[in-house]
C-alpha cells in the first residue's frame, strides 16, 4: 500500500547561501519514490498556527530527502528553526513529476527563477546518464540567492546565471539568457520553474519558437492531494489542481 503520511527526522537544516536553506530529512522509503518535479507537504508545527502545511519541491532524494527553501513567512520561519533530530509530519512525495525528454531531444533546458531552481538538482540526477546537452539558466535577484552549483556541474549541467542587480552573471532577468536555447522544436525541451511572470515569459518563448516544454507551478495549497480543489489554476482545458494535476504542466497549458 502506498503510504502518504510519515513522521520523518531532520538530519540537517542550514543555509546554502545568504537567502536559501537546505533541509535534509531522513524519510525512509519515500526517498526512493520521489520523482523530479514532485513535492513534499510539510506540517511545520503540531499546533494550528500557521494552519496549512507547506509544499516544497524535492531538491534531491539520494540518502536523504532534501528541500531548498527561502524564508518568506511564518511557515518557513518556523521551518528554519528546526534542528537535527526534530520530527516533522510529511506527506508525499506528491504531484505529477516532469516527463523524461523524448529520445530525439539533444538539448535539455532548465529555466529557474530564484527558489524555482529547487526541482532541477534531482532532475539533473535523473538525467545524469543521458547523453544530451543539459543547461541550467538561473535567474536570481542578487548574489544572496546564488549558491554553489557544483552538484549540477557534476551531473553534466552547464550553468548560466543572471542577476537583476548584475552582481553575478548577466545583468537582468533570466530571459536575457534565452540566447543559449537552441530553437529546434524536434531536439530542444524546456523545463521551467519560477515566479508566474517568468513562466509566462517561457510560455511566450515556447509558443514563438514552437518549442515543447513543461512548467512547474506554485499555489497556496491546503490538502496537497487533489481533494479540496483549493489550488486550482485556469488552463486551456479548464481549472486544474496544481497539487494533483500539476505542479508540472505542459508549457502551453496554464493560462498565466
Amino acid at each position: 500500500m502506498h503510504k502518504i503520511q510519515r513522521t520523518v527526522t531532520v538530519v540537517s537544516n542550514s543555509k546554502v547561501c545568504p537567502q536559501y536553506y537546505r533541509l535534509s530529512l531522513d524519510a525512509g522509503s519515500a526517498v526512493n519514490e520521489a520523482r523530479p518535479g514532485q513535492f513534499i507537504h510539510i506540517r511545520v508545527t503540531d499546533g494550528v498556527e500557521p494552519f496549512f502545511r507547506r509544499p516544497f519541491s524535492v531538491f534531491r532524494a539520494a540518502k536523504t530527502m532534501d528541500i531548498l527553501y527561502d524564508v518568506v513567512g511564518k511557515g518557513t520561519e518556523i521551518l528554519s528553526s528546526r534542528k537535527r533530530g526534530d520530527r516533522l509530519d510529511v506527506l508525499g512525495p506528491l504531484g505529477t513529476p516532469f516527463c523524461e525528454p523524448a529520445p530525439a531531444v539533444r538539448q535539455v533546458v532548465m529555466i529557474a527563477g530564484g527558489i524555482g531552481v529547487a526541482p532541477f538538482l534531482i532532475f539533473s540526477d535523473f538525467l545524469k546518464k543521458k547523453r544530451v546537452e543539459k543547461i541550467l539558466l538561473y535567474g536570481a535577484r542578487a548574489q544572496a540567492q546564488v549558491f554553489d552549483f557544483k552538484a549540477f556541474r557534476k551531473n553534466g549541467v552547464e550553468v548560466f546565471a543572471s542577476t537583476e542587480d548584475g552582481s553575478v552573471g548577466v545583468k537582468g532577468r533570466v530571459t536575457r539568457l534565452f540566447g543559449k536555447i537552441r530553437q529546434d522544436p524536434q531536439t530542444t525541451m524546456l523545463y521551467a520553474c519560477g515566479p508566474k511572470p517568468m513562466l509566462a515569459a517561457v510560455q511566450d518563448f515556447a509558443k514563438g519558437h514552437r518549442l515543447p516544454g513543461q512548467v512547474s507551478c506554485e499555489e497556496v495549497m491546503a490538502c496537497g492531494l487533489g481533494a479540496c480543489l483549493g489550488c486550482s489554476i485556469p488552463t486551456v482545458s479548464g481549472y486544474k489542481t496544481v497539487c494533483h494535476d500539476g505542479p508540472v504542466f505542459d508549457v502551453h497549458e496554464p493560462c498565466f
Binding site: 494550528v48 494552519f51 496549512f52 497556496v220 479540496c228 480543489l229 486550482s232 479548464g238
Partner: peptide
Amino acid sequence: EGNPPPRIAETAAGMLNAIGIE
C-alpha cells in the same frame, strides 16, 4: 467549473474557501 482563483486562504486557526462546488 467552480470559482476563479485564489480559492483558499489561510486564517488564524483555520481557512477561508470559495471553491464554488467544482
